[in-house]
Design a protein around this nucleic acid. Structure first.
Lengths: 264, 264
DNA sequence: CATTGCACGTGTACCG
DNA sequence: CGGTACACGTGCAATG
């Protein structure tokens, strides 16, 4: 009776939304109140194993095992209180939202027929949200740990966009370099012979190192050779002579062609 | 008066939520009803130009210019109807949701003080959602047109995850191939490496190439030297002797220590 | 009809 | 206290 209080449970209030309540994880069985278990919100997108497949239906929606049920218990509690204590103007406007069946035209009649549709809508929406969060978790899992540090949906999409941009750029650059390399290799093979460069004559580049650490000297030589090789234009290495001795190491490189070597 | 109907406009209902109404784009001025303009939901993530920057604050929230205002007009209409016709039990539970100020404890008193806070909360939430949709649009913009075809948030995150996976895989594969190419660019090479592992002490590693391209030979030698240098454990290079001739090039490397060289 | 998807406003938790 | 972020239930549009 008394249809005031905007009536959160305008129906019998006993077994009104039994399916809804069960959907909240508040089954009537289990007298013990499920244990609080606050669990923190969402647990920071717990990065589940890659799980390349099988995220279809099986282990889905298990993350929300004992999670936000505190909300739900509170909701149920509020609803029950609003029903029990006749007074108490607790204006809880949109908790499970009465709105008997989205029939704004007229209020009476047609009371118990469609009730299950609403419940299924709720469940569908919840599942949709859960799936989306799952997708977020998956996406967050395979982002570099540096980016998307805040672990929020917004940050995740931003970081994903940036990461995709970076990956595409890297991929294109790598592909270009690969193609260039391939092309150069094919081109070089045909371009034999022209070792006789015009103005430049042969000369010898000498590199010496006093350190006794052969490894470091090797590193230096590798760097010099890389530099030399990087100057692809009209430069030919004709000989390399290296000696590692106790007091140091030296390296003579014979080259032909004009070049300008600036060892920083 | 009459605090029943859960009171969507429990206050004076004249200039109750003037800021809220203006936020809905329903300013009192403009007698013409703003024109319907359904506009479709979200316009399928209209892929705005890349806009690498400047999506900070300027042109933001302009996408919702004349968009869902139909909803809002309906909302306002419903609220006005609920206020005018005193009866009419139109249970509109959560439209702008009365809940005078989230003060569930007691209903009377403290009526007009905090009203703006709720409005700012609404605006903040709306802006957050809008930002997230913006991120979705950005992310969707740089996905391959084939994937994420359905243009839904869920599909977008899924497609983004798949795309990232594919990009990473492609990148690694490309990098590996690049390295392999660099290593084996001229597959004509006869890399005869002295892969004498065992407990050997001093020995000579011989590398020969038949190509006349000195640059490629240099690259190969650089790589060999890098490999050698990378084996820091108990390995010493004692001498390097290289000769570049017309018919090819060879390189002898004297090493000491046990090692295991596997030139793939 | 039923289903999918989205935006909305709200309540709550966490952080300065 | 205000700020941010999330999940929630709901209404509405569009698609079968």
């Amino acid at each position: 009776m008394d249809p005031f209080y905007f009536g959160p449970d305008q129906l019998d209030a006993a077994a009104v939304d039994e399916d809804y309540l069960t959907s909240l994880g508040l089954v009537v069985l289990s007298p013990e109140p499920v244990a609080p278990l606050p669990g923190g919100a969402f647990e920071a997108y717990q990065r589940r194993a890659p799980a390349l497949l099988e995220h279809s239906l099986q282990t889905m929606s298990r993350r929300y095992s004992g999670e936000h049920n505190m909300h739900r218990r509170m909701f149920s509690y509020l609803r029950r209180v609003a029903h029990d204590a006749g007074a108490a103007v607790v204006a809880a406007p949109a908790f499970p939202a009465p709105a008997r069946e989205s029939v704004p035209g007229f209020g009476v009649g047609t009371s118990q027929a469609p009730r299950s549709s609403r419940f299924r809508n709720i469940m569908r929406e919840r599942l949709r949200r859960e799936r989306l969060s799952q997708g977020f978790a998956d996406l967050h899992a395979l982002l570099p740990h540096g980016a998307s540090s805040k672990g929020g949906k917004n940050d995740i999409v931003g970081a994903a966009a940036g990461y995709v941009r970076e990956l595409v750029a890297r991929k294109e650059q790598l592909s270009a370099r690969n193609q260039e390399l391939l092309e150069k290799a094919a081109s070089r093979w045909k371009q034999q012979g022209g070792t006789r460069s015009g103005v430049g004559r042969g000369m010898v580049v000498k590199v010496q190192a006093e350190s006794q650490d052969h490894s470091m000297a090797l590193g230096a030589f590798v760097r010099v050779l890389q530099r030399l090789k990087a100057m692809e234009a009209g430069l030919q290495v004709t000989a390399i002579r290296t000696r590692f001795s106790a007091g140091g190491v030296w390296m003579n490189i014979g080259v032909e062609g004009q070049f300008l070597l600036s060892l920083t």
